[in-house]
Amino acid sequence: MVNFLKRVFFVDVLAGLALTLKYTFHRVYTEQYPTEKPKLAERYRGAPRLNNDPETGETLCIACDLCAQVCPEDLIVVGSERDPDTRKKVLTTYTFDTSRCLFCGLCQEICPTNAIELTQDFELATYSRRNMVWDRTRLEQGWDRIDYGADRETASGRESSRYERKTG
């Protein structure tokens, strides 16, 4: 009987309506993406970067080729030549094909010197496929990113939107 009355008076429907009404005046969860950048976790695996020694400005990469070997997609190509004086391998070129990248992070995991690193920069869209292959300059210095509209207000937009370097 109670169930019948509940049915007649739409109790189930009204319960749902009450919930949705409650949420109508609730704080919204939307992130206004291009204007409001999400705060990504430190470990986030985004755009690759080839780190330089902050003091000397020289590359940390010792051209050991481990990243190229561990990469499941074989998309890293490390070019090196042997320095005739020190008998050490010196990095000459480094290409990283982001179009094929799985962002699995194996390269940065295996890197003995923390030279290759996947950063929190996630805006990798470009207008051409060729643009997706990153060479050494771009890996070291960042790139001329496509402007999504967020940086328009600041003159030095690209600088402001680059994420802070990892600390941990």
Partner: peptide, 8 residues
Amino acid sequence: LFEALFGA
């Protein structure tokens, strides 16, 4: 949480 722990 996944992002914080796994990185993706």
